[in-house]
Design a protein around this nucleic acid. Sequence first.
RNA 1: GCUCAAGUGGCGGAAUUGGUAGACGCGCUGGAUUCAAAAUCCAGUUCUUCGGAGUGCGGGUUCGAUUCCCGCCUUGAGUACCA
Length: 996
Amino acid sequence: MTYNFNEIEKKWQDFWAKNQTFKAKNDSEKPKYYVLDMFPYPSGAGLHVGHPLGYIASDIYARYKRHKGYNVLHPQGYDSFGLPAEQYAIQTGQHPAITTEENIKTYRRQLDQIGFSFDWSREVRTSDPSYYKWTQWIFIQLFESWYCKHTDKALPISELIEVFSKEGNQAVEAVCDDHVEIFSASDWNAFSSEKQQEILLKYRLTYLAETEVNWCPALGTVLANDEIVNGVSERGGHAVVRKKMTQWSMRISAYAERLLQGLNDIDWTDSLKESQRNWIGKSIGASVTFPVIANEAQQSQRIEVFTTRPDTIFGVSFMTLAPEHDLVSKIVTDDQKEEVEAYIKSTAKRSERDRMSDVKTITGAFTGAYAEHPFSKEPIPIWIGDYVLAGYGTGAVMSVPSGDQRDYDFAKHFNIPIPNIFEGIDISEEAYASKDNVVIANSDFLNGLALKEATKKVISELEKLGQGQGKINYRLRDAVFSRQRYWGEPFPVYYVNGMPQMIDKKHLPIRLPEVEKYLPTETGEPPLGRADVWAWDTKKGEVVKNENIDNVNVFPLELNTMPGWAGSSWYFFRYMDAQNDEVFASEEALAYWKDVDLYIGGSEHATGHLLYSRFWVKFLKDRGFVSVEEPFKKLINQGMILGTSAFVYRVVANSESEETERIYTDFIVSRKYSELILSDSGVAEKLKQQIRDYYIDEKKDEYFSKPFIIEISPLHVKVDYVNTSDELNIEGLRADKEFGKDFRDAIFIGENGHIIEGDNDLYKVGHEVEKMSKSKLNVVNPDTICEQYGADSLRMYEMFLGPLEQAKPWNTAGISGVHGFLKKLWKLYMGDSGLKVSNVEPTAESLKTLHKTIKKVEEDIESFSFNTSVSTFMIAVNELTAQKCNSKEILEPLLILLSPYAPHIAEELWSQLGHKESIATTAFPKFEAKYLVESSKMYPISFNGKAKFTMELPMDMSKDDIEKEVMAHEKTIAQLDGRTPKKVIVVPGKIVNVVG
RNA sequence: GCUCAAGUGGCGGAAUUGGUAGACGCGCUGGAUUCAAAAUCCAGUUCUUCGGAGUGCGGGUUCGAUUCCCGCCUUGAGUACCA
């Protein structure tokens, strides 16, 4: 009987599905364990071998935990709202729901064929109304909450309204918009409803406000900070500009400190925690107010700045405002007006990207106005400059050129004085930005103080003046929550007199309306502006036709949709109770499953999904909907699997006289030959002649008759046409549907310089390790691998490649190793005539092999070192084969060890051994140390730390006896060559080292 | 610039309470089997001037360092005028 993996794998996948082997129970006596993979977005391209890496690792762990007696929740679903499906819809007119459905089918088929132990009865899709009903519900909860600083948690907005109506807002300590007006209870009660709603928006955890946003014209939508990479959109790489728009925002800044502190209690990698810490960006300093010196035409104004170095306040020689700062237009003098306006115009034109890529050019303008120094009362010129960001702090800085390099450069450029306030520090070349060895000078009452004391002193003096206090600032900004797109969750919001109103929870879900096109309207409204049935009837409690809008009972609905991270910020709770229609998950389910014990996914979600999820969970906890503070107890980032790209080398002729005149020839040379051409002029001449001869009858002949230089242009080719020896399948390449036509006329020159006709020469490709992607033509499809080697081989090979967290290149050739191992394993159990396993007593040797394997595999799984257990299995099978072991007592437990890694073959052999039940919940074998006890040890004998030979000595031999034995050994005498050793180190059970 | 991670054969990688560096696999070489091929099996495979040398480089601690300490270099990832 041979190992027919295709048949076996299909058989067991069907068995698991039919018997619901992996269905998790919500009421179990067993301890719970929740293993989760990051939500996949079902893209049209399907899976490549890089995608399942994390899924395989989590599946191994989930299966292992079942063997260890846990009730395991291991679900899967789809983050199915998103940009790619919508972009495709725009191009083809196809409804995104249809493409999404098709893509999900492909994903499901691909996932199934790898043999994952998912509980599919709990599948969720973010684009499913029964799911986004609860996303909308959470949004409403956020709207109906505010953040109380006093209790440090979110509270219902009704409690805030009660306080307002009883005592106004003077005593309220809330996280809210800056500059909220102070009012009394009687003021509040006298306000109109609109006014009250306007005020409440400044307190709500999700609020509508005009904010400066990142607008991406190409995608027609705003983007959150984490959706922008290097100044361009993460998806598609389009330009992003700054724009003021009215948008929904999430007051995540309220949770900055808790998000930061919570990192200390979770088991995540340091690098991931570090990125979140940087993203939150806590800095401790002071806020300082500088009055603007008023001239007769202007009202008195104040500039508030944030600084981390209040101790350097006497070093301030100018102030700088961001060009967008509100105050600029109010303080600019008539003389400077023209210059300032011109400067603002020129900076507004620069995109975010330009501004970032060009940090060296110093630009700015003087406003003509002056501020007054809090202590010296000296006038300080106020400048504007785009090195000051409107979005950070207050958008204004007190510039201390002696202590900050950017201020220093700005001052040098505009000839502003640079007063030195550091004792014994030379600042003639650069600023002294270090916080070490600071002694303040030329600073009145701060003279002679070190940083810490000076900071303390200056803050207390500022407080006395009422011009400042200690302050903590966070870089974390409130997150923009509106997207001007179609394929996302609709907001459960309608507008009365321009004020947003929540639709009552009982009417949820508010379903996405139909539109005829997925583009913005002609007037620039989002795609939902095209819907005809998109108005809210408050009487009927349903969505009705727009024509019914009367602004009395029927009102317009919100036209924006929610961003991709809305649905993914809470999905892990839905898996606990996926079918519930009454609540997002029942109390019992939430109480049983609590949180995710193990979360595996990519590090690209560090500052997006993983931060937003933590924020929503903290909020849900504050409001009593869940009991956990953090969603993901342990998190592992799997490393990327890189692709091995293949290159052919096209010959390019470049005119000797005019360097820009390049012609791509039809000649494509092999790897080795391409190097030869560049290094050996003789070979190059020969090729030139071949090219001239070839084009002799063509128009290009004229070009090639003149002298030209040969260059080589590497070109990606599909890795599908390259075999394990790097040889290119030329005929296959020419027949390729997509790229074949590019090579139909190509002339291939092989390794030995011959034009390839038949098998007279070989064409070899070059290769390079790059990210696996469609555009680099280096994707390897798991379907092909499963077909040729089987899912078990794929699973084991993905693990065998290297440590889970590290990036590593894929090389299909290497899979023969693990595939050969599985065949060898099969042969250990199955002979030509069937099962070879019997009830014979195992040998001590076999028991030792088994137990050291149990020990190692268990340790490896616990430490997520899956690559080393694959080696361990190989060693075990090699040893047992050599021992000719066919004892059931050995081979049966071995299958349980293997089953998390290669579940199909394990199930098959398990049933061959006579079991009727699945191997999935069989108890993990128990390691027994007694089988590993050794009576002797092969001691390595070292001389000055270098091992020279080994000696077998009893384990229980004393140190002295070992030394005597070693010294008496003939090889020792030969090594020493008559010398007397200074010292002999004997470490029993380890090593002997002879020194001297 | 800052933060984090990582540098070991031709390749993926193994070994860290400091104790025989290169497990396991790929590839390669030779052999067996075969008419031949595939498959399978066996042997070898860090370099070497055969003394030794050797885990990115230079120091240090130690009887002994891939492992610990100090200083550099390189690569990758993230972040970036954050006051």
